[in-house]
Design a protein around this nucleic acid. Structure first.
Length: 317
DNA sequence: AAGACAAACAACCGCGAGACG
DNA sequence: ACGTCTCGCGGTTGTTTGTCT
């Protein structure tokens, strides 16, 4: 590899940069531009390899860099974009003017990642990690969140139940969290509240049989985790029937402008290929039992988007 | 004050993609 | 078509700084 060839030269210095080296590099690049990085050490009189010069410039010397700690808005942006792109630090950094991919990556690893983990969220998938899912499900079970105890393995079942119940009640919350709810459930309230709000936008519930895009293997026995709550099963206090709703989100009158933004973001993701989205999904469930088109078109919906945001808000706050 | 430990930051390494001859 | 060069990216490691005991 090239970068290593130049770095293996005897006279190439490594390690931290001195102020003198910084000044040389800064002066040269601001005067002549960087051109070919490999030729910069020679012309700037630096005992470094071009690769090292490039890195130093990009990560430290660039005049447009913003120094200092990340703002809460930047933190939220990182989380939101990371949810879409995963560990694509360069992509994430593009959404943060003045920040480098290296900076974002370091901040993620030293700060955000730990925070998500401490909140019980998988930093890769932004979903609840299994041990916390179990804890959550036990709490939900204890407080009788379910209207019935029929077997269900899909979180969409949960959604459809909520949707039906919500429709029937015409706006009345489908369940009231008791005043003496434990901290865990209290913490989750924002998520549920957001989700419940979203469900009202999708009153139509269809069964799995009417969904040709779903592969045959994605039956009721498939474990689906899309809301961040993870797979629900009998053992973990499950409820509902075996149907779920692949929402065909209707465009409602007077809908929030955000939908347009989400669609644009969705298009962006599609343009980059569905791979990244699928890749993220893969970590939370077995993609082999899914129609990938369905995954893209349905899972990355407005409803899901906002649901995920809520989950991250929960994690962050 | 000094050592241990953790967190934050800086830099390096290996790889892949694209440009070019 | 192929090989080489260059650049950019993500993962990892090393170093510095801060905090605690």
């Amino acid at each position: 590899m090239d970068g290593h060839r130049c770095c293996t030269k005897q006279n190439v210095k490594r390690g931290l940069w001195s102020p003198e080296e910084d000044e040389k590099l800064f002066t040269y690049i601001t005067t002549y531009g960087h051109g070919k990085w490999s030729s910069i050490p020679k012309f700037a009189g630096l005992p470094r390899c071009g690769k090292s010069c490039r890195l130093r410039w990009i990560n430290y010397l660039r005049p447009d860099l913003k120094r200092g700690s990340f703002t809460s808005e930047e933190k939220q942006t990182i989380i939101d974009v990371h949810r879409i792109f995963g560990n694509k630090w360069a992509q994430i950094a593009k959404h943060l003017p003045g920040r480098t991919d290296n900076e974002v990556k370091n901040f993620w690893n030293s700060n955000i990642k730990k925070k998500l983990i401490s909140q019980g969220l998988d930093p890769n998938t932004h979903n609840l990690i299994p041990s916390h899912q179990r804890a959550y499900n036990e709490v939900a079970c204890k407080y009788n969140v379910s209207p019935n105890n029929e077997l269900s393995n899909s979180v969409f079942t949960l959604n459809s139940q909520i949707t039906n119940a919500y429709t029937l009640e015409m706006g009345t919350p489908i369940f009231a969290v008791p005043d003496n709810q434990p901290p865990l459930l209290q913490n989750l309230n924002p998520v549920w509240n957001q989700s419940l709000t979203d469900f009202t936008s999708f009153p139509h519930v269809s069964s799995i049989e009417s969904t040709p895009n779903i592969s045959s293997s994605s039956s009721s026995s498939s474990l689906v985790n899309l809301s961040g709550f993870g797979p629900l099963n009998h053992e973990n206090c499950v409820w509902g029937d075996s149907t779920f709703a692949p929402f065909e989100a209707p465009i409602l009158e007077g809908e929030r402008p955000m939908r347009q933004e989400v669609l644009q973001e969705k298009e962006k993701v599609s343009e980059m290929g569905t791979n990244m989205v699928i890749q993220n999904m893969d970590t939370s469930f077995d993609s082999s039992s899914f129609d990938l088109r369905f995954v893209e078109s349905t899972f990355v919906s407005d409803f899901m988007h906002r649901d995920f945001i809520s989950m991250d808000d929960f994690a962050w706050n």
